[in-house]
Write a protein that binds this DNA or RNA. Structure first.
Lengths: 359, 359
DNA sequence: TCCGCCATCTGTACCGATAAAGCCTGTATC
DNA sequence: GATACAGGCTTTATCGGTACAGATGGCGGA
């Protein structure tokens, strides 16, 4: 017994000769009508193929969607494969689950109106904005939409909750560790500083232009530590690589190759992510460069792969899952005291990829 | 200049003395009004802090949400960490991106009404149902809701598109490979057969009860191949493990321990996933059992970690990303010819974890 | 001069529900 | 016997838009 038209609360109500409010109550407030009538309504609804109150209409009236959106720098299909991002999503998902909220991954259609429109029209109660780029136009859209959001690893915005780590301090830790081991000759593998697809040595102009918050902070941390130890920054070769398309690990491998294949090879390489560092390890292995005998490598993130690598990777640990979870909680359950700035701790994890420089 | 009330199309319209339809057109159909008026409207709207047409209301009227939901067996926070599931999500996300659709991860609140309600109320145009359990009550809800959905690695349902692999055939390939290498003494690491949290040897009753499609199929494949080679099925020790909570790899390690620590240790272990197999490798390493010298191990999935393992893992490859992408396309762009059943190919990938049995 | 057409707007109906208040009727209270 | 109150159902007023069918006025063509 299927109705020709999609049935609605009203059609059910008419069928039974009751008001549609009563049908609505049968679903949402059992205490507002007699059990017998409720039974009768639900039965009839089922027979008429009524799928229950339309969630869209209900949401329009009620005002709460029951889902939050997550916006990425890159296409979701890349982000989901990035171990660090995946861990953040994981932490966020666990909070969503506890709060029975859905998690909408908003496609990051690169450049242009499309990605923006998706933010304008996504059916959510708020957003997690996990994007590093300072001038991201989507941020304005988010603000225009007048919907709560929380920034993760993003440039700060006044009056908006923010979750991240002390990237600069973490980078200093990494550099200081290598300095303490006696290294004086450094290479750096950096994320891209400007969203233009460039790959190659970092130039002073690009360093200055730096439009990515995390990248700039980490680079500044490296620089501060090295310069404080009297190392000439111009002697430090930094290779920019885009972790997106081809995979961060391969980008790291290419950067490692660039650093290792030129004369005056560094004895230590600082990589801005573990994936980069693992790529450097591969580049070293391909060239028969012993790690840590001839080369020390320090990553950033402490993803699961870091511990499993051969040699295991010295790195800066940051609590990815906690980051996601914290952001989720700030969004779903905003503190009465207003927007927060949460800086999570970093920690140097010494493993087998770093050692004293050869006497 | 902020209005006290949240502004709507109508309030803007009143302010300017035009009809609200005209304001709507200013946003959606620029060709329906003069450029000057449109300009004036958009400017006023901006000044009044109007965030643009409410997506919810628009969706209610238009009928298309622009997002699809994905439903998992386990909590999303687990699923996202499972390499195979993550790859499926990745493939799906890439299709969503191409079609500008959002991807909603529906929290899999285990057991009970909550998870069901979330399916009933999620704001999406359709679902990908990535769940293995035969009796999953959420399937009924999905059907009741009258919304299109596609099954992935799930028990089949008449009249519904299905994407998966020939699990039984794949398992046969794995077992046959080991038989071809001369093995006669087998252990198996299986997913759980019944959703009750049990861990331990598989009993005949549980094998028969098997409520999980993929699990049952793979086990049947192993069994068929082994019995065809004259191996007594009762001599094959199968350890059930739940890949969820503690992590599949650790579950595999525990299962490996159980299989290796008893007298009559098998010379070959078939694992239903690469994560299980990697756990078995670890258990072997911990006991000084040489792989593949004293023990051959074959996984299932060919996740990235399989190739990177030490020793690298022999396994059954399946196209995870393609699986997700295929499902996404079937949902977003349903073939005119009606529901499809797509069986993707599997392939034996021989690596270093399997070898001839020692004479 | 009259007609038809295009470009611009306006009006009317929904889309499918829920909140809040209202209206009976029967019953407990004093 | 009047008052209060609870149970059970209905009414009314939105929620915030968009589709579609007019209405209006200016203008070129016959």
């Amino acid at each position: 017994m299927v109705t020709k038209k999609r049935s609605t609360l009203e059609s059910i109500a008419r069928q039974l000769g009751v008001s549609k409010m009563t049908v609505s109550n049968a679903y949402n407030r059992p205490d507002q009508l007699s059990p017998e009538l409720r039974e009768r309504i639900l039965k009839a609804a089922h027979e008429l193929g009524y799928p229950g109150p339309n969630p869209l209409a209900r949401t329009l009236r009620r005002g709460r969607v029951g889902a939050i959106g997550m916006v990425f720098d890159e296409p979701v299909s890349f982000a989901i494969s990035d171990p660090a991002a995946a861990l953040i999503v994981r932490g966020l998902a666990s909070v969503c689950e506890a709060e029975r909220a859905g998690l909408l991954l908003v496609p990051g259609v690169p450049g242009g109106e499309a990605g923006i429109d998706l933010i304008r029209t996504a059916l959510v109660d708020g957003f997690i904005f996990y994007c590093d780029y300072e001038g991201d136009p989507r941020l304005d859209v988010l603000r225009d939409r007048g919907m709560p959001f929380v920034l993760v690893d993003a440039p700060q915005v006044a009056g908006v909750s923010w979750v991240g780590i002390d990237d600069r301090g973490g980078a200093r830790l990494a550099a200081q560790h290598l300095l303490d081991l006696g290294h004086r000759s450094f290479g750096i593998v950096s994320f891209d500083m400007v969203p233009d697809g460039y790959e190659g040595p970092l130039t002073p102009e690009r360093e200055k232009a730096g439009g990515f918050y995390v990248t700039s902070e980490r680079l500044a941390g490296y620089r501060e530590a090295l310069e404080a130890a009297g190392i000439d920054w111009t002697s430090v070769r930094t290779e920019e690589r885009n972790p997106g398309e081809g995979g961060a690990r391969d980008a790291g491998r290419r950067a490692g190759a660039a650093l290792l294949d030129r004369p005056g090879r560094p004895t230590a390489i600082l990589a801005m992510s573990d994936e980069f560092a693992l790529g450097v390890l591969r580049a070293a292995a391909e060239r028969g460069v012993d790690v840590p005998g001839q080369l020390s490598v320090v990553g950033f993130d402490d993803t699961p792969a870091a511990a499993a690598a051969e040699p295991s990777l010295t790195t800066i640990r940051q609590p990815h899952e906690l980051k996601g979870a914290t952001a989720g909680r700030l969004l779903l359950d905003p503190p009465a005291s207003g927007p927060q700035r949460v800086v999570l701790p970093t920690e140097l994890v010494v493993r087998a990829s770093s050692a004293s420089v050869r006497g």
